[in-house]
Simulated assay, not measured.
Amino acid sequence: MNKLPHLIVFVFSLTLGISAQESETIPFAKVEQVPIYPGCENLEENTDLKQCMSNKIATFVSRKFKKRVLSKSNLSAGKKRIFVSFKIDTSGNIIDIQTRGPNKASEQEATRVIRLLPKMVAPGMVDGKPVIVPYSLPILFEVKNKRKRN
């Protein structure tokens, strides 16, 4: 009786096995239907969906990103940039997060925030089939000179 759930899961995974088409990676700019970010479901045009998704991700990142973490990381004053890339899989999940920033603390904070992104309502689609869609964004911030206290 204990083996039945394992058998069902195994059969289920075989039934839903990934085909070559499903595991294909299609650039965000070229996908027929972009992944649908929560709150963008009511839009129909792909260009509107792209814009909505980009705006929602940018807003989310700016709200969740903790700049004070970076102020404690001994970065020199000035404008800084963290390059972030990730993929949205065929189920709408965020996977394969990669970051490149001015130091480890900035990369860790960017990774933390991207992990918080919600699951997409629908994955990217090509020919009516789900595909993996890569997405990139820069996170820009400014480090101010620390003021000396008297």
Rank of each mutant, 00 (worst) to 15 (best):
I82N: 02
T59S: 04
I95V: 12
P134R: 14
R149K: 08
L116E: 10
I97L: 05
R112S: 06
E22P: 05
L16R: 02
K56F: 13
S136A: 08
V34D: 09
K3C: 02
N74E: 05
P5F: 00
R115P: 13
Y135V: 09
G92R: 11
M125D: 05
E24N: 07
D127Y: 12
Q108A: 06
R115D: 14
V61A: 04
T47H: 09
V84I: 15
S62K: 03
K30V: 14
E109N: 13
D48G: 05
A58Y: 01
L16M: 03
P134L: 04
G78S: 09
G128W: 02
M125N: 03
L14I: 11
N46P: 13
P123F: 08
K67R: 15
A58H: 02
A77R: 12
S71C: 10
L117G: 13
M1L: 14
V143C: 08
K146A: 00
V121N: 14
F10E: 09
K50T: 06
M125Q: 13
R147D: 12
K50I: 02
I95T: 12
K72R: 12
G101R: 01
D48L: 07
L16Y: 07
L7T: 13
E32L: 05
I57E: 11
E24P: 02
I132Y: 10
P5W: 11
Q98P: 06
S91G: 03
A58I: 10
D96E: 01
N145S: 14
L116W: 09
K129I: 13
K50S: 09
M1P: 11
R100M: 03
E32V: 00
G92A: 02
P130Y: 13
D96R: 06
V34T: 00
R68Q: 12
S106D: 03
I88K: 04
R112Y: 09
L137N: 04
I82K: 06
K80D: 00
A58M: 06
I95C: 08
Q108D: 04
G92S: 08
V11G: 00
P38N: 05
V69M: 15
L137Y: 10
L4Y: 07
K3I: 03
F83T: 05
V133L: 06
G17E: 06
K144V: 02
H6E: 15
D48R: 02
F28E: 01
I57W: 00
L70S: 11
L75S: 10
N93P: 12
Q98L: 00
M1K: 08
P130K: 11
I139K: 01
K119R: 15
V126H: 05
E109S: 00
K87G: 05
L43D: 00
I94K: 00
L70Q: 04
N46K: 04
E41G: 13
F60L: 14
P5R: 11
A110D: 06
K64L: 05
D96M: 00
M125F: 03
D48M: 11
C52E: 09
R81H: 01
P5H: 03
P130I: 10
C52P: 11
K30E: 15
S54Y: 08
L4C: 03
L4N: 04
A122S: 15
K66D: 14
V11M: 05
F65T: 15
P123S: 06
P138T: 03
F83G: 07
R63Q: 15
E24R: 15
Q51I: 08
V34R: 03
K72M: 07
N2H: 00
P5S: 09
M120Q: 02
T59R: 10
M125V: 08
C40E: 07
P35E: 01
K56T: 14
I132T: 14
G124S: 03
